[in-house]
Every structure is written in structure tokens, then in C-alpha cells.
Design a protein around this nucleic acid. Structure first.
Length: 265
DNA sequence: CCTATAGCCTGACGGC
DNA sequence: TGCCGTCAGGCTATAG
């Protein structure tokens, strides 16, 4: 689930539900997901305090703990958040349960344990340590800096868009959507793109990510011209009706329309 | 620098 | 029905 738009929706959800409430209890049901800290550390940091604000960089969500550091949440491929009251509504794969003084709970739910939870002192330091590129929607990432980061690279465009060290936030699904919208094949070599094409990829990336957030990262609400909902076997091109093709690109499955994006370059 | 591969983890789905 | 392989919206380590 979680690429930049999904995590942004989670951030707003947490922001709307879970700030300024006393944290009464913390249950780490899958201790493996906690990085560089013990359960005791986590409880000591959170219990009795409250969440104050939120921040996001790429696919990483940071929650400020009042009078302390940050709680970092990364969702892997299957993570999500759920805020609820009755414990019988506790999601099936609740890995971390935070209970508030008002009787409500916030669960970090993830079927597969590919995500991570971590206590972080300094968000900027975390970003530097993980060598993350600028957030894909950051105002600091303008067309010139984007083109500079890509121009001169030797590889293919799709893996570069997904490379979190170049820019943070785009994953398998949204890279396909961006490339479909600009009509470029996922295996196209960056060398074969000119400046105006890179510029168009930049503009389209921002547009696609903003639209997805506006639509709550729900593909069913995306514009009719989007490919994401068709990203399945037997999926069809929303423009010409052609069967979508798939190709493996750096270990991931890319969906594309041969009419809009050309054949294998 | 770049790509493909395998692995981490868990469940869903299709084929025999 | 049962078993097996494959695949899945992330990321890393490893080899070529």
C-alpha cells in the first residue's frame, strides 16, 4: 500500500485522530519491528506523554512526542493505521497498539512484517543517515534540481524513480502511473531522454502524487485516464483499451501500454 | 555506477 | 481437498 500518497493519507489520519491525547498504554505485539530500541525504551518514551505533531519524508512518517523525540513509522508493503474504540475492532495484524487516555486506540497494522518502527531524536539526521533524497513533493525539489539528479545517469528510468536516494516517496505503482501519463516505457534509458522529457516527468510526478493524495490514495477515485486501477492481470489501457503488458524491471513488475509507451526499447 | 537476484515476512491465488 | 509454486504498492545485501 504505502508509497508517498498513502503515507501522506496516514499522516493526516493520525494528525486528525491521535494528537494531544495522553498515551496510557503501549503494547508492542511484534517486537521484531522495533529498530534500535527495547520495548522498555518505547514504553518509557511514550507512556504518560502525548503526540504533538506529524511530519513525513517520502514513505517515512514521523510523529513528535511531546518533550521528547519522534516516533518513526515505516509501513513496508502492507502497513496501515487504524484508530478505534472497541478492542474487538482491533485489526488482525496489529503489531503496535497505542492506547490513549480517552479510551481510544491507535494500531499499526501490517500483515507482513516488512515495515519498521523506531525512536528518532532528529528527523534530519535520520534522513541523512538513510541517505534519502528530497521528498518528491518538497517545494525545494524544482524542475532544475530534478533534472540535475537524473541527467547523466546510466540506468533505466523506472528504477531511478523508485530509488529513494535520488528522490523519496515514489514506489512501484506510482512510478508506473507517472510513466504511463508521460507515455514513456519503464525500461527507457535515462540517457535516451532529453531535457524536455525529464522536465515532463518531473511535472507529471508532482501532478500524479498530488492527485492521488487528493483522492485519498484510493485508485477507485483516480481520474479515468489513470492506469493504477487497471494494474492487474487482464488490465486494459484507459486510453486505447489495449491489454496492458508487464515487464520485470529491477525485480518489480511494471505495467505499461505498448500503444502509449512503445514497445521494449 | 548499475542490474538482477535472493531474502526478509505472510497470505492469496491458480494449477495439478 | 491438499500441496506447491508464484506473486505482492518495500528495502537491503550480494554478485557480476
Amino acid at each position: 500500500m504505502p508509497e508517498l500518497p498513502d503515507v501522506e493519507v496516514f499522516r493526516r489520519y493520525l494528525q486528525a485522530t491521535s494528537l494531544h491525547k495522553r498515551i496510557a498504554e503501549v503494547e508492542l505485539r511484534s517486537p521484531e519491528i522495533l529498530v534500535d530500541a527495547s520495548v522498555q525504551d518505547l514504553k518509557a518514551t511514550l507512556c504518560g506523554r502525548s503526540f504533538e505533531s506529524t511530519s513525513r519524508h517520502g514513505k517515512h512518517l514521523f510523529v513528535k512526542v511531546k518533550d521528547d523525540g519522534w516516533l518513526m513509522l515505516h509501513f513496508g508493503m502492507t502497513g496501515q493505521l487504524k484508530y478505534f474504540k472497541e478492542l474487538q475492532k482491533d485489526p488482525e495484524y496489529d503489531r503496535l497498539l497505542i492506547s490513549f487516555g480517552n479510551g481510544y486506540h491507535l494500531a499499526y497494522d501490517a500483515m507482513r512484517k516488512l515495515g519498521e518502527v523506531q525512536l528518532v531524536d532528529d528527523v534530519e539526521q535520520f534522513i541523512a543517515d538513510h541517505e534519502l533524497g528530497p521528498d518528491a513533493l518538497s517545494p525545494d525539489l524544482n524542475a532544475d534540481t530534478f533534472v540535475d539528479k537524473f541527467a547523466g545517469r546510466r540506468g533505466m528510468i523506472k528504477p531511478a524513480l523508485m530509488n529513494q536516494r535520488i528522490i523519496a516517496g515514489v514506489g512501484n505503482v506510482y512510478s508506473d502511473e507517472i510513466l504511463f501519463q508521460v507515455g514513456i516505457h519503464p525500461r527507457t534509458k535515462i540517457n535516451d531522454l532529453d531535457r524536455s522529457q525529464l522536465d515532463e516527468i518531473y511535472q507529471t510526478m508532482k501532478e500524479v502524487l498530488r492527485t492521488a493524495i487528493e483522492k485519498q490514495a484510493d485508485p477507485e477515485r483516480f481520474p479515468d485516464s489513470y492506469i493504477t486501477e487497471q494494474r492487474q492481470k487482464d488490465g486494459r489501457c484507459p486510453v486505447c483499451g489495449e491489454r496492458l503488458q508487464t515487464v520485470k524491471v529491477s525485480g518489480r513488475t511494471a505495467y505499461y501500454c505498448p500503444n502509449q509507451q512503445g514497445d521494449e526499447p
